[in-house]
Amino acid sequence: MANSQFTHGQPPRIGILLVNLGTPDAPTPAAVRRYLAEFLSDRRVVEIPPMLWKLILHGIILRTRPAKSAKKYASIWTPDGSPLMVWTQRQAQYLRGSLGERLKGQGLPPDLVQVEVGMRYGNPSIASALAKLKAARCDRILLLPMYPQYAASTTATACDAVFKALMQDRSMPALRTIASWHDDPAYIKALAARVNGFWKQHGRPDKLIMSFHGVPKFTLTKGDPYHCLCHKTARLLARELGLTDGQWQLTFQSRFGRAEWLQPYTDATLQALPAQGIKRVHVVCPGFPSDCLETLEEIAIEGKETFLHAGGQSYDYIPALNDHPALIQMLTDLAINHMQGWWQAPPDTTELVAQTARARALGATA
């Protein structure tokens, strides 16, 4: 990361870095291969012994998987690009505007807080986003990973990338990170608003499936809190929706390899439900604030095929929050809460002199 030239006399700003997983630059085998090579080389993501995994990754996976994945990406690609990129950029845009309005209301410059997007894998990189914030004179940076539930393979590796990018920087900014917002009341209410809005238009299902991204089961035994955080999000959402135990179920999607992952599995659950008399299902993904390949292809397309082929009669995927106003408001409040001490306007010179005089007077009378 290149160092920005330090200049005196310019007011500093606060930076917010929204970090998401990432996406290929295009739905092509070559672009997907580059993306997967970076993603699957992360030791936080794949914890197989490095030498063995390198042989598997370069000898098998990167030879066969890119073409298959490219077809899946092509099925959900938009005229503006990858859905994950489109929604994350839009969230940053709306967050920027929301914070500007809040700043103006407190008599502060509306551009005091700058917002940039960095992808853990692919473009725009975290390093490039940090460079933009530094160029905008941000001497305080809040890292906001767009993962409601902390996991080492998502939030922690995003932090790793930020720290690594700043290692070469001579003028280090102050840095704060948000580890998790899985139980934020405003987030739960936003999810419930999305679900209730969908039900108002489409009616209620026999069962609501809450599908979260899966991780290997051994991560739980090693101390990763992700499994517990997902369960808490699901319980809080079910309570907010007023659901009884039989009206909803938590599952985990996106298995990879032969190891056991967190259960119950989403695909196996969808396969089994029709035989249990559950004919109408809705699926929501509370771990994905932005729609992406895993929601739009794996859940909305593959999940539907699995359920209907098994005898189900009706299947719907409830879209992610994306640019829902309740999500933007929640992100605004979340950012402000984590910028305590950074948010207030600094006192002017006259006020500083007055504070010093009051402190000396108190010291003289003590």
Score class of each variant (00 low, 15 high):
335 A>M: 05
312 G>L: 09
5 Q>G: 11
220 L>C: 10
77 W>G: 01
325 P>Q: 08
266 T>V: 00
104 K>P: 01
233 T>C: 14
148 P>K: 02
30 A>T: 09
177 T>G: 04
352 L>I: 10
62 L>G: 03
183 D>E: 00
18 L>R: 00
38 E>S: 15
126 I>F: 11
277 G>Y: 07
318 I>G: 03
31 A>K: 03
315 Y>L: 07
148 P>W: 01
229 L>N: 00
70 A>W: 10
328 I>C: 06
183 D>H: 00
100 G>M: 06
350 T>Q: 12
359 A>C: 06
8 H>V: 13
247 Q>A: 09
11 P>Y: 06
61 I>A: 08
205 P>Y: 04
144 L>D: 12
124 P>C: 08
197 G>W: 07
250 L>A: 14
214 G>P: 06
271 Q>T: 15
150 Y>D: 14
312 G>F: 11
252 F>L: 12
360 R>K: 08
12 P>Q: 11
363 G>I: 08
302 E>Q: 14
169 D>I: 15
330 M>Y: 09
208 L>A: 06
207 K>G: 03
193 A>E: 15
38 E>L: 13
240 E>G: 11
284 V>F: 13
179 A>E: 14
120 R>N: 01
175 L>Y: 07
116 E>F: 05
106 Q>C: 10
288 F>L: 01
329 Q>T: 14
69 S>A: 15
116 E>Y: 03
195 V>G: 00
90 R>S: 13
228 C>H: 15
125 S>K: 02
176 R>T: 01
353 V>C: 09
273 L>F: 08
137 R>L: 06
158 A>G: 14
175 L>A: 12
300 A>E: 11
174 A>K: 06
284 V>K: 02
313 Q>N: 13
278 I>R: 01
215 V>Y: 00
45 V>Y: 02
167 M>H: 10
102 R>H: 02
178 I>S: 05
214 G>S: 07
155 T>P: 05
302 E>M: 10
19 V>K: 00
73 Y>I: 01
67 A>M: 03
222 K>N: 14
105 G>T: 06
51 M>N: 09
263 Q>L: 11
356 T>S: 10
185 P>E: 15
315 Y>W: 09
161 A>L: 10
173 P>A: 09
289 P>T: 10
312 G>N: 13
161 A>I: 02
128 S>L: 10
130 L>Y: 13
208 L>D: 01
330 M>C: 14
262 L>Y: 02
39 F>M: 05
349 T>A: 15
95 L>S: 09
180 S>N: 12
294 E>Q: 01
38 E>F: 07
188 I>T: 05
146 M>D: 01
149 Q>H: 13
83 P>F: 10
32 V>G: 07
